[in-house]
Design a protein around this nucleic acid. Structure first.
Lengths: 148, 148
DNA sequence: CTTGACCCTAGAGTTGACTCCAACGTTTAT
DNA sequence: ATAAACGTTGGAGTCAACTCTAGGGTCAAG
């Protein structure tokens, strides 16, 4: 189950082929093997790497920062104590983040519970758009999901 | 403890005055009261609102979407069942998000635990920059925090 | 009564992260 | 064997979200 082409990998990782090529350009992904014709061929480890990027991105890191994390992850890390402290601070922040997310979840839950009354009120004119959330390009079916 | 000027509010909310004025321009914040001289004067509710924005942003929502959430939050919501379903899907996604964050936390924790050996190794030449994470502009003291 | 730190506006510029394009080669299905 | 559906490149374009600039007003301290 090795040897994914660029758009296969993109699909599995929930992104686009363009994005993967872009990541390669900026050095976030290593140049993969190539087929005789010059097609990119990725292994499973690339998938894991892209997923890590996506997760870290979700957390609010910029791609440049993620690149460094990745380097550290597989390199062993340049071992100054300062770095350790930095990463530890990061973990603490992560905890704060998660608490904040829990708050947001509660807020939204509350909105839903208290405000939804008119179940399936078809007789309403509403407009606006909300929330692509997982991905903007991932438009496969859900349209650009309006709210109201 | 009311009546914050724009940069006071910015400081408390962990952002910049420019950003707050920008939010006002795009309709994310209501136009606040003004002093006789035309200075913006905000109350505590503005702080709460900005914090909500930051939280929601952290979760990956675009400002336009957040604006809608905010409107719904204080308006009572236009009551189509579709909306409820949308928000409920959002909560489910939030749960997935939180799980992903927990994974990331674990990854980083692991990195820290396994890789940090040379506690305070001063004899090292390293370079690079990592992670502003909480805010990019919040440069008060931590410089642009290098890693290594 | 001036200096420095704040505030205002409209509008231009920057940054990060894609996203698309043209012009071309390859693979697969009919 | 030809079209559809992929792949390649370099470079340009787009979008959100700031961020900065110019050119001005305000206000507390000395």
């Amino acid at each position: 189950m090795e040897q994914l082409t660029v758009s296969k990998l993109a699909e599995r990782a929930g992104t686009s082929a363009d994005t993967l090529r872009y990541y390669e350009r900026i050095g976030l992904l290593p140049a993969p093997q190539r087929s005789p014709a010059g097609y990119r061929l990725y292994g499973e480890e690339a998938l894991e790497r892209v997923r890590f990027v996506k997760r870290a991105q979700r957390f609010g890191l910029r791609l440049a920062d993620i690149g460094e994390l990745l380097t550290i992850r597989e390199r062993g890390l340049c071992p100054c104590g300062r770095t350790r402290r930095l990463l530890e601070a990061r973990v603490a922040e992560l905890d704060a983040e998660m608490a904040a997310l829990a708050r947001l979840r509660h807020d939204i839950r509350h909105m839903v519970d208290t405000l939804s009354v008119d179940e399936d009120g078809d007789g309403w004119q509403c407009g606006g758009s909300l929330v692509r959330l997982t991905e903007p390009p991932h438009d496969g079916g859900g349209r650009h999901s309006d709210l109201c």
